[in-house]
Design a protein around this nucleic acid. Structure first.
Lengths: 148, 148
DNA sequence: GTTTATGCAAATATTTTGCAACGTT
DNA sequence: AACGTTGCAAAATATTTGCATAAAC
């Protein structure tokens, strides 16, 4: 997504295109797949724009969540994290695998969850709109380490 | 699980069976499937044991998590919640469906996730030990309301 | 010029921690 | 008696909010 598209989205809602909003967006976009905390975004942006306030970062995150520009992720480490939504894959948010040994987080796509969701919708009469799937376990690297 | 079993588990680890630990356990056990916040547990226990401190509740929750007596659940409402682990179904933690309209949380079992996990293990070389699945959408009741 | 957004500081809310007193083994 | 545990209060952490100023339209 280009900066002009962000401008367009904001204009449609009667919102203003500020330096701060553009910078938060650029920071998130520069590292797709990275799970930023609010503080991390703040630190990144402060380098080029030291006058930004942490409260603005929080407010911008809130706004971007409402505009569905970013996803919220909770990895149970005491921080809520955010990553930019992948426009090429709007239908399905990806899943996260968290290694309990090294703490590394792996993101991946896996369509088999659709069967699961279809079954749940049928069995319980729900309409599923979104999901958050976290798998915990040992990653390939840590499994191999344990073999030694 | 009986109180004597809790006592046994604690003794094995060289930990003491205190009134506070028994009361937190009983509170959790009295409502299986209920998602307690720390504060809710505190309030429940205070009725019969007003001298308990909130810090003790937090410390007991931490302990029970380490002993795998309870599960941690985050429903994105600003509170971390806990529920007692179902001993009759140790293999599989259940899943949660959260209605975005009424906010109600439905817990359910669904084995189809095993296929999903088996596939992920094979495809990425992970060893999956646990999972947390949250589905967001409209529940049966709210779907019907919207038909009117 | 009007309205929205920002930065700062203070407030909120949740959870953790230090420590003296206490309870369990 | 020894050691783990508790309650309290204070600290730490994360996030939100009020308000005067500033920037965008």
């Amino acid at each position: 997504m280009k900066q002009t598209e962000l401008q367009e989205i904001l204009k449609q809602k009667g919102l203003k295109t500020t330096n701060q909003r553009v910078l938060v967006f650029k920071a998130l976009e520069s590292c797709p797949g990275k799970h930023f905390t609010a503080e991390e975004l703040y630190d990144v942006i402060k380098v080029d724009y030291p006058e930004i306030g942490l409260a603005t970062v929080y407010r911008t995150i809130q706004l971007f969540l409402e505009l569905n520009l970013i996803d919220k992720i909770n990895l149970d480490d005491g921080f809520v994290r955010y990553e930019i939504v992948d426009n090429n894959n709007l239908k399905h948010h990806h899943h996260h695998f968290i290694c309990v040994e090294c703490g590394k987080v792996y993101s991946f796509e896996e369509d088999l969850l659709e069967d699961f969701e279809a079954h749940v919708e049928k069995a319980f009469g729900f309409k599923i709109l979104n999901h958050e799937v976290k798998l915990y376990g040992l990653c390939k690297v840590c499994l191999q380490k344990n073999w030694i």
